[in-house]
Design a protein around this nucleic acid. Sequence first.
DNA 1: GTCAGTGCAAAAGATTTGCATGCGA
DNA 2: TCGCATGCAAATCTTTTGCACTGAC
Lengths: 159, 159
Amino acid sequence: MQSRTERFAAFRRALKEKGLKSTAQRDDIARVFFASTRHLSIDDLYREVRKVNERVGYATVYRTIKLLKDCELAEERHFADGHTRYENSESDEEHHDHLICDNCGKIVEFNDEKLERLQEKIAEGLGFVLARHRMELYGICRECREGAGRLKTRPGERG
Amino acid sequence: MQSRTERFAAFRRALKEKGLKSTAQRDDIARVFFASTRHLSIDDLYREVRKVNERVGYATVYRTIKLLKDCELAEERHFADGHTRYENSESDEEHHDHLICDNCGKIVEFNDEKLERLQEKIAEGLGFVLARHRMELYGICRECREGAGRLKTRPGERG
DNA sequence: GTCAGTGCAAAAGATTTGCATGCGA
DNA sequence: TCGCATGCAAATCTTTTGCACTGAC
């Protein structure tokens, strides 16, 4: 997996290639994003960045996350709660899906080769050439079932 | 599968049970929704209902679709385009997933037992008890690959 | 110095809510 | 009649945009 530093460097490189400028705001937002525990909402990101740099506006966070998406360094996700979240996309790493606890909001990532192949087969059987997919499993995690789980929290937090 | 009439009756029954009233607006919205080709946006639904009944406001469509969700007669979906759509949920029928054409927006429903079982197994392996899931496959359908496909249209339309 | 980048506030789009009135039971 | 349901408009919430100013190159 790419390190934070590598991703950060990749971002600056991408900016330069497109003839865009590196700025303190972009740097700070990218750094916070790459260092994050993933699945951040814009608001999460904004608040984290403000801790580091007071001089960052909401609009710039939106504009920068869009740049990160363009560079394929961030991925946008719409989970079932309707809130948009962003995660580090790891193009050089394996694709993964999500398993989400309905009680505590914990998000577990997983990858299953058998599943991927089965999806391809299903799509093929219906005449499609598969480009990508999205899959989320929702349930209750072991901790919550055993009563040790935290009370309901905002999904997106790391468990 | 429940007929439109049965679903409509179920809705009115549910309202009565909750001590809520049946009104012309609710009836019309529900009827249009049950008769629909599925995957309607609020706006789609509003426009369809207005054809039948001029005296329906946007807010009432929102309020009624929420009632339908509560009765488990409608299901909310957030596809990757970020737009919220609603479909008839068919609790008595088999669960299904979606295969969506990136070019023409066609939505094909499918159900695969093997896939369902595999998901259960994956969740179990990670300590979860699975409650539900969401899966969407995106790709290009045969018609579009063969050049016969319509040009890009709004997703959600029936192909 | 130039022009892209920024913050702010206003705009835009989606959804919800307050309130006076309408209407079902 | 009584109180829930409705339409409208205003309020929210999220995201985008216009504009004058700032700062990277």
